[in-house]
Amino acid sequence: MRRLSDAFAQAFKGMFRNGLITFVSIFVLISCLLFVGSFALIALNVAYNLEDVTDLNEIEVFLDFDADDETVARVQREILRLGNVSDAIYVSKEDGLDDMTGEFADYGYLFEDISDEENPLSDKFRVLYIDNDKVTTLDYELKQIDGVRKVNSRLDIAATVDSLQNGISVIFVWFTALCTVVCMFVIINTIKLSVYSRRDEITIMRYIGASRTYIAAPFVLEGALIGVVGATAAFFLEKLIYSLLTGFVTAQMNIVKLYTYAEMTPTVLTVFFGISLFTGVVGSLISLGKYVEA
């Protein structure tokens, strides 16, 4: 216990002895964390909203133009027999036209003259399915049904959304890696300074037979403390930035769904403390280098 409190005391002393550079490294750490954190929050919200696009769980199945009532009934039976299908709602071409007229109300005149005989649409089913991941299979199975003209499964949109999300993830990983390297560099230099100002003490400790852990502990703690201070400050600053940002977004476009900061807290804390403790501890171990060798 005594040793641990000694190590903490030394670590604090170290932080204050290198006052300015400690401040600079905490500042850099906070900046990096805010950069990574803000990007992550934006990316997560974008993903959250994109989910809706693919999450309709609905496929449109168009029938042949000349489909009769019997065909409609048979196709419906076959659709419902497929796995992953929860419902198949019939929309006659007349209903379809009405829907369209309603959707494009401003252009109503375009549809006014279309009589039922001239209706360019075909009957369709709105197929509701359960599992988004098996939509490719379902799409294929639906196309195999006799009497089906066209299947509109939004696979293209799903693919776009997927690649968008992958792209965001890749950028996020790169940002995180870049920030980790920058923070590591700064912390290594901060702790190096601390080690340098105590090099004579370290030499004496080594001759007396202090263990590597005993010698390294204060410096590792110093690195970790810089990390904790940086991560904590960044957490609250991020909260502020996020509330300003979400306030702005909500005011501009109220259809956008946004996570609350409370919902994001576990993620933010994990990322912030993960990066800062990792760079703090590993950085100080690197800067100790040959000083802790025997």
């Binding site: 030499t203 004496i204 080594r206 001759y207 007396i208 037979g209 590597r212 025997a294």
Partner: peptide, 16 residues
């Protein structure tokens, strides 16, 4: 090494 050195006392010219 640390354990070994605990059983050796060392004195230098510059006291340290």
């Amino acid at each position: 090494i640390p354990k070994y050195r605990r059983r050796i006392g060392v004195v230098f010219q510059d006291f340290r």
